[in-house]
Simulated assay, not measured.
Amino acid sequence: MAAPPVIAVVGPTGSGKSDLAVSLALELDGEVINADAMQFYRGMDIGTAKITMAERRGVPHHLLDILDVTQEASVSDFQQQARDVIDDIHARGRRAILAGGSGLYVRAALDVLEFPGTDPALRARLEADHAQLGTQALLARLQAVDPVSAGRVSDARRIIRALEVQELTGRPFSSFMPRREYYRPATQVGLGVDREVLRERLAVRVHRMVDAGLLDEVRLLDARGLRRGKTASRALGYSQFLRVLDGTSTIEDAAEETIVATRQFARRQLTWFRADPRIAWLDWHDPELVSKATALCI
């Protein structure tokens, strides 16, 4: 018997993805897989609005709290981990439900998507070339071997990565671009939002995080090496509140900066997910949301 489609609940931050995923799991005998990159980190609870044990309502959750803040999140690692968990859930006759707003991570789990490897020595050589020759020289080098990627990238980090992949694999970096082709059958449910309501909701959310002890959480994580983490240290709220600890910002200013950054992030998420025609969108405030979402996933 073929496994049922994987379910993915997607949408912008603050739209209620975690709650809907739990409700679907209860309706469909499912288990939830986290697809929010910042919720991989142990101790990053308040600032990521990580779902609590009470909010999980007994539903098993996977790929939460799997990294220390000093470790770097990897999309390719997540792809394998998520697919292994999906296989395990389906082997036990249950439904696998992805929930999260990290668009590339969702795509990695659901779609045909290759991740070329890395070579530290090659990367170091290219970075040295960049330091000596500059961005434009490396962009010209990329233009010669991969004009498609050269037309898409402009910052040094991505140019170096594209050159690394081309030299390492013999294939242009552009050939690894994702296709909208499911790796296995899937159903994506998107939470459509009223943007003005979401703007206000995100502001309230950040202030609640501050009241709940976000600064203390950042202080504790700072002692665990938060600043050394390439991924965790850039998380919304955490980078802003590290400056409060440094005495270069106030709590009030850090909160406002976090609100602005979170709203910008939500807009980028909506742009990303709206570009995928396979997502079935539902109104996040529809009183029949759970039943309509369930009907899409049966």
Rank of each mutant, 00 (worst) to 15 (best):
P4Y: 06
Q264C: 11
C297E: 03
H207Y: 14
A121E: 15
R263E: 12
G58R: 03
I298H: 14
L63K: 04
Y238V: 01
A128I: 08
K292N: 03
E31T: 07
E196I: 11
C297Y: 04
A255T: 01
L163K: 05
E72M: 14
S76I: 06
I86Y: 01
R267H: 13
V9E: 02
F176T: 02
V22C: 04
P172A: 07
V59E: 07
G170N: 02
G47I: 04
L67P: 01
G225F: 04
D222W: 15
E114T: 13
L67E: 04
G229Q: 00
V165I: 15
A235I: 02
H130A: 09
V244L: 01
T262I: 04
S18W: 02
P178V: 00
A82F: 03
D246K: 09
T271R: 15
T52Q: 07
F241R: 00
D194N: 10
Q132C: 14
L282V: 10
A144T: 09
P4H: 10
H90Y: 07
A54S: 11
A108Y: 00
P277Q: 10
H285A: 14
A203W: 07
D146T: 04
Q264G: 15
L104M: 12
R199Y: 05
A275V: 03
F115A: 05
S149L: 06
T262F: 05
H130G: 11
V85G: 11
A280P: 12
A108Q: 02
G16P: 09
L296V: 05
P147R: 04
V189C: 07
T248I: 12
D216V: 08
S15I: 03
Q240N: 06
E114L: 10
V69G: 03
D253T: 14
L226F: 03
L26Q: 13
H90Q: 14
R195P: 01
C297T: 09
A99T: 07
P185A: 10
L110Q: 03
R267S: 15
F78M: 07
I159F: 06
L64K: 10
I259D: 01
L214P: 00
S249D: 13
A54Y: 14
S239I: 13
V197I: 13
L28S: 07
L198Q: 00
R234A: 10
E288G: 11
R243T: 13
D68K: 09
S175Q: 08
R184M: 15
G30K: 01
S175T: 10
V165Q: 02
A156T: 10
V6M: 00
H61N: 08
S149E: 15
A73N: 12
A37S: 12
V244S: 04
A73P: 12
M1N: 14
R205Q: 13
G117P: 00
F115V: 05
A37L: 13
T48E: 01
V75T: 12
R208E: 15
